[in-house]
Amino acid sequence: MEVYDCYQKTDLASATLIWDSKNNQKITSLAGKNVIKGGVASWDFYWQLFGRNSIDNKGLLIRQYVHYDKGMDNAYWDGRRMVYGDGDGTVFTSFTSDIDIIGHELTHGVMENEANLDYENQAGALNESFSDIFGIMIKQRFNNQDVKKSNWLIGEKVLIGPKYALRSLKAPGTAYVNHPELGTDPQPATMDKYQNLPDNDAGDWGGVHINSGIPNFAFYVAAFNMGGYSWEKAGRIWYAVLTDKKLAQNANFADVKNNSIVNAEKLFGLNSQEVKAVKQGWNEAKV
């Protein structure tokens, strides 16, 4: 793994290498320390649970860039690396502050090397949902939290204020309510509230970060009903879906519902409690 400091500039090519896993340099940047911690937790998650060797399963060197741009309130995966801004300091703090966001971004890389779901409409919302689901599991595992102990919130430190987070898998649409700057979390939890948005940048490519609330909620219900640690049963099923060659790039929610049931049956048996929990999850999400 390598960590680069952009020193609040936007030219990634001129960013400075401040840490790499071979030399394990001492660093002062808190954002740098955060992404090392989150990157290691994410790498360990995929390796120790699924035997996955990095993002591409071929040992790809993980590169993370911190302090990108001045006050950038975002984090993203650009197809080759993870990039994090410091936040504006008023509404958002550093996007490295939550381990689930680091896990989310790294999972976009895993997704790109596996199902590679299209980044638009339902497939795009599933793409986002897989990142949220693996992001929350990485955080839960790092904090040794079971399904009951976890609050299922993504980005609870990044969005400033004790009542706020960026997303909730347990209750989509409630991560922030009446926020003075952002208003209220627009995520639906169920298919009857699906939002048809334009497939352009202003429409969030058909609401990929909005409608992801629906498969997120399905996963939460399934994992909660299975009990214990989310990654031990539900996580295995969702990883099997993510890496299933039968999953089409333009898969919709119903496709992933069916695929997750088939994979649950393969892993745990036709009439197992786990299969019932998966079905309950998708039914609760009205998919």
């Binding site: 993203y76 197809g79 971004e105 790109e112 793409n127």
Partner: peptide, 11 residues
């Protein structure tokens, strides 16, 4: 240009 995952855009 490929769509950046979680990317932001300017108009």
């Amino acid at each position: 240009t490929p769509r950046i995952r979680d990317g932001h855009y300017y108009t």
